[in-house]
Amino acid sequence: MENILTLTNLTKEFGAITAVKNLSFTIKKGNVYGILGPNGSGKSTTLGIVLNVVNKTSGQFTWFDGNTSTHDALKKVGAIIERPNFYPYMTASQNLKLVCKIKEVNSSKIEEKLEIVGLLDRKDSKFRTFSLGMKQRLAIASALLNDPEILILDEPTNGLDPQGIHQIREIIKKIAAQGTTILLASHLLDEVEKVCSHVVIIRKGMKLYSGRVDEMNASYGFFELKSNQNSILKEWIAKHKDFKNFKEDQKGKITAFLAHELDAESLNRQLFKEGIVLTHIVKRKESLEEQFLQLTNNLK
C-alpha cells in the first residue's frame, strides 16, 4: 500500500524539554488514523513538524515516499490545527479563494465545499462574525478545497458545544466514508474510537503503541456481574480457569476479566448450576479509554 507520511526517529526539543522523542510511524493510504495522547504529549508538535511550521531537532519525515518537497506535498494535504486561522476582515468565500491561490487549485469548488459544511448561506459574511463552530467548519471546507489525499485534524472538536461536536463528527464520518485518509489527533478517546481504524498512542513524546485499534489489546473482554450471593460468586470466579482476575466496587458490582473466550449464556448457565443467581450480567470489551489508561499507566 502507498505510504502517505513516514516519520523516522523524529525528535523535537524546546530548550531542556523534549516534546517529541524518537517518534516513528507510517501513515498508509486509505486508513483512518488517530493520534492519541494526553494534553501536552507532543501531538500538536508532531503535526506542526510535518506541516512545516515547527522545526525538527533531528530525525526525518517524508511525504508521499519523499518524491516532493514539503511545501509542495502540503498542497495535496488538508490540515486543520488547533484554532481556525483566517483573515478576520475577509468573507468566507474570499478566504477560501485565497487558500485556492496558495494551493494552486481552481476556485470552482468553493461553493461545493461550503455546502458540505453547511455554510453556503453565510459565504459572504465576514470571518470575524462567525461562531467558533462555524469557524471550525469553514476550516474543514478550506482543508477540503484541493480534494486532499490526506486530511489532518488536530483536536477538531475542542471548545465546541455538543451540537457543534456532533456536526463536525458527522462531516468527518462523511469524508472518511469517501475513502479519504484521515489523521485525527485528539485526547477524546470516544472520538477516535468512533472513526479510526488505526491508532498511534503517544505519551511524553514517546510512542507507546501503533497499529489497528482492535488489535491494541489482545483481550477477551470482561463481565460485569452482580448477585445477592457475592461472596460465593467471588470464590467461584477465583477458582475458574477462564478468568484472570476480578475486582469489586463499593456497590457490589464485580468486574471479572477473561483469560479465555467465554460467552454470557454459558457463564450464566454454569453459575445457575452452582446455585448462584445473578441479578446483573453484562459482557463487554475494554473501551479504547480503558485500554488507553492501562497503556499509559503501565509506564508510570
Binding site: L51, A73, L74, K75, I81, F86, Y87, I102
Partner: peptide, 13 residues
C-alpha cells in the same frame, strides 16, 4: 491572526 501558520500549512513555502 496566525494566518502565517495557516499559509504555510496550506502549502506556501
Amino acid at each position: 491572526n496566525k494566518t502565517l501558520k495557516q499559509n504555510l500549512i496550506d502549502g506556501l513555502s
